[in-house]
Design a protein around this nucleic acid. Structure first.
Lengths: 225, 225, 225, 225
DNA sequence: AATGAATGAGCGTTCATTCAT
DNA sequence: TATGAATGAACGCTCATTCAT
């Protein structure tokens, strides 16, 4: 397996990030980690429906009774997994923010590159559509996911504000939202094993350029409130 | 219920399109119509998992046995619904294609307006994320959905080709793909009952302008193969 | 396919015998024939459970509704099939009875040969165990099957009576019963695709000889009432 | 209920034999015992089809969910029952083998007596025809059943070898097979509630004598390979 | 911390049967 | 004759959950 394949394909423990439960023993924490990892693996490989308590337990080589000890209800498990997944993405975004000594344009390019690269990973391609469908009927998931997106847009808004000091915060936010949404949309077309996966380089070139152009050229009064 | 609400909210029979079965009675066709409509309603209102054979039958005021008479397996029902939903969107796209006497720019604007308006409807906001998540593990759905997207991009490619006769077909296709993906991504952020639903006008303005700009300005050699 | 394989393997229309229903049209009779043939085929190939109304109809290229027109209930079908199957075996037995100019010993040998050859056919190996299991809980089947066996034993009893004029009818019947039961038992061990199918010649030699010996040698007073 | 009726009629826990599951509680083993017993009872009283998961659970006064906890699939249940039934018969056969100080003839007589007595029990009369019909379409059952028969023939082959030291192993096996098959066939005619149940004594007398005669008198060269 | 046992609800599917067309 | 439509019951199975051990 090449490095590239590994990068886009495999799910590793590092794909999840979560703090030890306060007051829990070390072993319990390890077990929780194992459970969440198995759950993510199932979610990625076989979809949300396959992430049942039984299958997660089986994937951990653990009995159902023990799983329910650590996560009494399925909702508990789902939310813990959501937290862990989101936390793992926040690690990524914090990396971008701390990129000093860059022109805003270059910073934006790096941002897009990183996001679009992530979109092509198996994990992101598989997890996010599941989350999107969940957001339609679960307000809790809706909140958490958009909280994540808000954090993801923060560095973007900062870049835009630097490029266009004449725009107000709401206008910068709208531009950042457009850019973020635009890239998310590519998941479906050029994500992992999607029909236009090989066209991602073209999409990235077009997108990056379109984003810089629109930020540079749009007039403040052309953005409705 | 206001016109606007109706437009974005309600599911009507017109949201589905499918041909009568050969050799069947009129009553049978009506029943199948009723079933597909109920299935779509459940999908939109409560998600894919809620679209169970039992609930669909109950929603039709029909016994389970009769549902399985018309759709012997759940897969049959799902595929028939997929066909009907896709057919209903194809009706929409055929309308766009036949827009003569327009500058390509204006034509593009109308196209974006129509797509983004559709994205805000309850039906589209709810159905497509379910489809996206299905495409991850069901190759049949993947095929059908991307067949639909291909048809949706066709008028877009024609417009781009008019605006940029110097670009080859593959380059036009890449631009169309970017535009289409970009708009699809907005479903999650500004679709029906999504957090940025009220910001759709801003997104539309930015997007439309960004799309026209990038088509106009990108150099042929800046689009990788 | 060799003659031998055909003989032991295939189900042909000739394997069923049944008279036209009185007052029925010719076409209806043909359809009934077709149905019964398909039912037998299913019974032989996939067992009694597979002989459902739906599968029989499908195997005939006919709709369920039409099958229920010809056989309103499953029991009707089962009993008609039972009749037809039994009638087809009676054709065979009548052939044996009319074997003049034979010593009783030779007649017995021919009888055993014919029965054991029949046992090795796919049809008999498959159908009779199903019938035997049905007889345990369906008195109607029990009656019909033992009626058939009674008819099958008739020529046997005649042969025995010729060989042992000193025995009374009940004693001859007991010997015939032993011989018949003995051969039926071989179905399970040396019938079609059974583990000892290739050992049938040895079984036949042993059985034939054992039968002749016991008839010849047993004392009347050694057969309890 | 007289002793005789009890002997031939009732199903008791002793009719099944199976080991406790490792790691399981005592209660769990009791439950599995109860389930297998109920399943056998249903099989004997109402046939294989009646042995459904629901009916077995109901017969145990247990919920379906708990039955599937102990036997996740119907196949698991069927195979466990098959194992337990077979194990119970093996207990019987081991008893026969250990019969010292007998002439082979007397030993054979005892063997036949025991088998034919067993055949008249409700359990054997009902269970074996179901097994025979299952062997036609389930290779697993075919294997298990013929494994049992092989074990049942072992003492028979030993007896025959003693009576006829001049015969080789294959010839002894053929004779044992004939005897075993011959007696099995009587199930259908003279088993529990079968039409010739009262004639079993006559059949036993004839059979025992015929078996001893054929073993004694057959020439080695009269048994084909 | 972990397993064993049990419940109750729901799933997709198959079936025999009835009746209108 | 034959098909289309509908019902009601049962099937094997999976599931989230609860609780005793």
């Amino acid at each position: 397996m090449t490095e590239l394949l590994k990068k886009h394909n495999a799910i590793s423990v590092a794909d999840l990030a979560f703090p030890p439960r306060e007051g829990g023993y070390a072993k319990g924490h390890e077990t929780r980690e194992q459970i969440l990892h198995a759950a993510l693996q199932l979610l990625v490989d076989h979809g949300y429906r396959a992430m049942s308590m039984r299958r997660v337990a089986a994937a951990c080589g653990m009995k159902l009774g023990n799983l329910t000890y650590h996560f009494p209800t399925r909702e508990d498990l789902v939310r813990a997994l959501l937290d862990a997944v989101i936390a793992s993405y926040e690690v990524e975004f914090s990396a971008i923010s701390q990129n000093p000594d860059q022109t805003p344009e270059h910073h934006l390019e790096l941002y897009c590159e990183l996001v679009l690269e992530d979109i092509r990973t198996k994990k992101t391609t598989r997890v996010f559509p599941e989350l999107w469908s969940l957001t339609n009927h679960d307000p809790f998931v809706l909140d958490r996911v958009h909280e994540l997106y808000a954090r993801a847009r923060a560095p973007l808004e900062a870049i835009i504000a630097k490029m266009r000091p004449d725009l107000d915060q709401s206008q910068c936010a709208a531009l950042a939202l457009f850019i973020s949404a635009s890239m998310e949309g590519m998941t479906i077309f050029a994500g992992y094993e999607k029909p236009f996966e090989p066209r991602m380089p073209a999409l990235e070139a077009i997108a990056t350029r379109a984003f810089i152009d629109i930020i540079r050229s749009i007039a403040a009064e052309d953005i409705p409130d």
